[in-house]
C-alpha cells in the first residue's frame, strides 16, 4: 500500500469491486470529526444571535424558529453525511461528486435565511461552486481516460499514477468549493444566525481540503 507513508497503515477496508472504501488513521480522524459535528447539528438547538441597536443601549435577538430551523437542520445533516462519505471514499469520481454535493448543501444551509446580505453571498458562492464542478469532474474524467481506473488504491499502486494536469484540476475544483482564495464569500455566510448549522459550512469544506491533500499525495 503506497499511501502508508502518507497517512498511516489502513486498518479497515470495504471493497465494492475494484473501488475500495478505506479508513486510514488520517481519514478515520477526519471521519470522526465530521460525525461529531453532524451529531451536534442533530442534537443542539441553534444559538440566538444578539445585536445592538446601533447608537443606543438596546439590543435584540435574532432567532431561528419553526420551518426555517427544520430545513436548515436537515441541510446541515445532509452536508455532514456528504462530508463523511467523501472522507472514506476510495474513488476519485465519488469524491468529486460528494464535494459538489457538499456545495449544494452549503447553499441549502443559508438559503432559508431572510437576509439580503447573506443571500447575496450565498448566490455568489453558488455560482463559483457550479463553475468549480468542471475542474472537479474534468480531473476525474482525465484520470479515467489516461489510467483506465478511478480507484485510489489502484492509482497509488501504479508507477505513473494520476496525471499532473488532473491533480491540478481537482485541487482547483476543491478550492472553488470554498477554501483559500474563494473563502471571502464564506466569511459573509457566517454572519447568518444559527451556530451549529452555519459552522457545518466550514467544517465540510475544511475536511474536503484535508482529504484532497491526502488523495493527491497518495495517487
Amino acid at each position: 500500500m503506497a499511501s502508508a507513508g502518507v497517512a498511516g497503515e489502513p486498518f479497515f477496508a470495504l471493497p465494492f469491486g475494484d473501488i475500495v472504501n478505506y479508513f486510514t488513521p488520517y481519514t478515520a480522524v477526519l471521519f470522526g470529526f465530521a460525525l461529531l459535528f453532524t451529531l451536534i447539528c442533530i442534537l443542539s438547538r441553534p444559538e440566538q444571535q444578539l445585536d445592538v441597536v446601533f447608537g443606543t443601549d438596546a439590543y435584540y435577538a435574532k432567532g431561528v424558529t419553526g420551518k426555517e430551523l427544520r430545513f436548515r437542520r436537515f441541510m446541515s445533516i445532509a452536508c455532514g453525511c456528504a462530508t463523511m462519505a467523501a472522507m472514506v471514499s476510495g474513488d476519485v469520481f465519488n469524491f468529486t461528486l460528494f464535494v459538489s454535493m457538499v456545495g449544494v448543501c452549503i447553499i441549502g444551509i443559508v438559503a432559508a435565511v431572510k437576509s439580503r446580505h447573506v443571500l447575496d453571498a450565498a448566490y455568489n458562492y453558488g455560482i463559483i461552486a457550479i463553475v468549480a464542478t468542471i475542474p472537479l469532474f474534468g480531473g476525474a474524467a482525465i484520470t479515467l481516460a489516461t489510467t483506465g481506473t478511478l480507484s485510489i488504491w489502484e492509482l497509488s499502486a501504479m508507477a505513473s499514477g494520476m496525471p499532473l494536469i488532473a491533480k491540478m484540476l481537482i485541487i482547483v475544483g476543491v478550492m472553488g468549493e470554498g477554501i483559500a482564495p474563494f473563502y471571502a464569500a464564506k466569511a459573509e455566510l457566517f454572519r447568518a444566525p444559527g451556530a451549529p448549522y452555519v459552522i457545518m459550512i466550514h467544517v465540510s469544506s475544511l475536511l474536503m481540503f484535508l482529504r484532497v491533500v491526502e488523495i493527491l499525495l497518495t495517487v
Binding site: V6, G8, P25, Y26, L30, F190, A195, V203, L206, V213
Partner: peptide, 21 residues
C-alpha cells in the same frame, strides 16, 4: 503521520468558529 497533525491543526479552526459562534 504529520498529515494527521496538520489536519488537527486545521481542525482547531473549527474550535475557534464553534467557540465564537
Amino acid at each position: 503521520s504529520i498529515l494527521i497533525l496538520f489536519g488537527i491543526y486545521m481542525l482547531h479552526k473549527m474550535v475557534e468558529h464553534g467557540v465564537g459562534l
